[in-house]
Amino acid sequence: MTRTHRLGIDRIACDGRGLCAELLPELIALDEWGYPILHDTAVSEALLTHARRAVAACPVLALRLERATRD
């Protein structure tokens, strides 16, 4: 069993500022209207710091990082 982290987006709160895609391009792209597309919700150890920074940078607090347990 390993602890992993998972990214989630509150789609109602998100208003497409796009900071997350700048700070975490490995996992997040933007669609043509500027709203995030998640390539993968699982966050690897290597990307954790970047992911935390992206979460903290979201001005509307729409991005969240959850701990998840995986077998």
């Binding site: 789609r11 208003d15 497409g16 209207w33 709203y35």
Partner: peptide, 9 residues
Amino acid sequence: RQCGPCTFG
């Protein structure tokens, strides 16, 4: 019309 992808897509 609460979520961007739905509102525009």
